[in-house]
Amino acid sequence: ESYGLGREALPEEIAAWDLDVSPDGTGLPPGSGSVEDGEAIFAEACGACHGVFAEGVGNWPKLAGGDGTLANEDPVKTVGSYWPYLSTTFDYVHRSMPFGNAQSLTADEVYAITAYILYSNFIVEDDFVLSNDNFTEVEMPNADGFFVDDRAETEYPIWSGEPCMQNCKDSVEITMRATVLDVTPEETAEEAAPAAEEAAAEPAPEAAVEETAAVDPELAAAGEKVFRKCSACHQVGEGAKNRAGPQLNGIVGRDIGGVDGFRYSGTMADHGGVWDEATLAAFLADPRGTFKGTKMAFAGLKKEDDVAAVIAYLKDASANAN
């Protein structure tokens, strides 16, 4: 039965959305990229989270290494050690990476990044060039490491039937306690606080209110949304810490390259001067054009309105962090 609802999808629309790539190479766009190009692109676009050698930073995924560890106590599951299909890497990078700036890479760049990830896993040599023509020739080390769900044969028959109700064990001992590990988050005072305490706490940051008076609250609110692009790497506000990028409290008026404990690029560390609004605006619009060599792997904010909004938000959030 047809309801006659919807309209026919146009070829351009299907081309825009139908990007998935299958293990047999179906869906690959034409193009190519070398390990050599990939190394530079990876460092810029991926290195902040995945490390320049794809070794992973902090809790972010490791993409390389882990060879032969799958049967160990803590297997290291990387593209090289675990992923059965190369298409998965291309497909995911093409559609969903970099984190916070998805679908910004060209097909050639994705080929190059994929080639570099293969190289970082010792699957190809340093002169390798990956393309849609040789894509399916690459052999993934763990291609045969998977089997289809067999619970119906290996588990269900042994865990079925009438279970024991009485005298099921002779004795029971406690063998492990969660409180020994002590990894459960505390229920914070903030969320448990009765309303009266919250009300009493509210008027405290008076000084901050005065400072923020100059910031247009609507602009700052718009900036908060734009800032989501940045928040994969940067924190601002109370308790902000350095992550892939430096914390941004007080960025307007702060020394360039001036946060203690953050490993800046040479460019940024040696620049000198302070972040005034004009410099910050130029940097946000075109990071690598403004500070050649910066580690900040971000293409830039194309709209002037977004730049102004983010700066307003950064000022506002910094003020509220006091």
Partner: peptide
């Protein structure tokens, strides 16, 4: 015609057994 074998069904949401082999398509 077949599964895409996307990141969420290969790299993630697959189950590594003791011998290092992995179950896939463990949907239920």
């Amino acid at each position: 015609d077949g599964p895409v074998e996307s990141r969420e069904e290969t790299s993630k949401y697959t189950d590594v057994m003791e011998d290092g082999s992995a179950r896939k398509w463990t949907w239920v």
